[in-house]
Write a protein that binds this DNA or RNA. Structure first.
Lengths: 220, 220
DNA sequence: GAATGGTTTTAGGGTTGTCTAAAAATATAT
DNA sequence: ATATATTTTTAGACAACCCTAAAACCATTC
């Protein structure tokens, strides 16, 4: 049975999360940014993770996580989220304080510990940020998805899918930067025509018609 | 402010505990046995801990922990014990399952986490094994001490001091292996003369008169 | 006061994970 | 399609730990 070090667990979790956002192969640079490390270090680690067959690694062509790798990543994510629930529900941490501590706690290896903790917390399905907690088998109870035009002002969420898969529509989304995985926030809704203004990834604002918004699915 | 790695924290905790037992300098071999590692690795680590001034290290002459080092060790011990209480009281672990998990949990760095955990557990003063938990400032609420002859059959404890400090008495204790720090268990009490039979360190049994037992102080 | 036995340290090497600097490969633009 | 820019990988080093084998040291004993 493959055993991963703390660092490997962290990398794998990051790779899984990045690949869930974009759905395509994940780049060395992205991983380096996410892990706050240098691309050279990432290359090194990718080689190791490739040898352990938790990722599929083709030099210069980014990374895909394997089924085995997903299991490991989801296990770490499950532990991270359960500890977050513990910190908020039991120890009265505020939701913005928990991430750093959970980053350490997520590596504790005892399986029975996590089972007991899960039970103690009442088998929670979502963490304090609303992210779903994978179950023991790595299954995730997905949050309901809403068309973007049904959100209210100041609502936030993440683009998880599109209804219209026409190439023209996807091309448009690509151009404006509204990719799958983007974090959005509704800044303005125009009553007259239903068009909205959103903030994408806390970086740039974007206007779109009601028709476009209706085809973008948001997970809150 | 000095920062210690996980391994350094583990060594320091072991050194502190060994030095509490024997009161003299701690030997490289003893540390290696305690840490389940090799003497050569210990030498390496002692050099590092010496540089960080948490121990006083004279080559070939064993080790003394410094005041600074004690603080670190007590902090780790406090965390270890608090997590043990959490595992037993909240997650329903049995007292013999907790040590391995607590060995991992004791390294989690967040100060506020430990404060909140302490509060959540009701500021416990003793861990599930009866060992006292150092407070935030490293102070330990000592357990009441009893003369060995006042224990009952099957009572357990640890030799923490002797009343009679005569060299003859200490020599005798040394010879029979009843050193400070030894774990004892009362196996038999003879009504007639008050003499008792005890198990020392789960290794060997020992008979002693009431007079001798009365001079040995036990912490339960 | 030398020889012996046990303990401790040094020397040298392996793994994990990080870095900088330079080389190699890919992507983009004219 | 070739030059340029960007991304990614390799090379070489370093720190933290651990190991084995050999050397150095200490404490006895004769």
């Amino acid at each position: 049975m493959t055993n991963l070090t703390y660092a490997e667990e962290n990398y794998l979790k990051a790779i899984y999360q990045l690949s869930e956002e974009g759905k395509k192969g994940v780049s060395t640079n992205d991983i380096a940014a996410e892990m706050k490390t240098k691309p050279a270090s990432v290359s090194d680690m990718l080689r190791k993770l490739g040898e352990k067959e938790v990722i599929e690694y083709r030099k210069y062509y980014g990374v895909h996580i394997t089924e085995e790798g997903k299991k490991f990543a989801l296990r770490t994510i499950r532990k991270h989220h359960l500890w977050e629930v513990f910190l908020v529900d039991k120890l009265k941490f505020s939701w913005d304080e928990v991430n750093a501590v959970a980053d350490e706690l997520q590596h504790i290896k005892s399986k029975i510990l996590i089972q007991r903790l899960d039970e103690y917390l009442g088998f929670p399905k979502f963490d304090p940020h609303g992210d779903p907690i994978p179950d023991e088998y790595g299954d995730v109870r997905a949050r309901p998805r809403l068309p973007l035009n049904e959100l209210s002002i100041l609502d936030t969420g993440q683009i998880v899918a599109v209804k219209d898969n026409s190439s023209a529509f996807l091309k448009y989304l690509d151009k404006v930067g509204a990719y799958i995985g983007a974090r959005i926030k509704v800044l303005e809704k125009v009553e007259f025509d239903g068009s909205i203004e959103i903030m994408v990834d806390n970086k740039k604002t974007l206007f779109m018609s009601k028709e476009v918004a209706a085809n973008i699915l948001i997970m809150q």
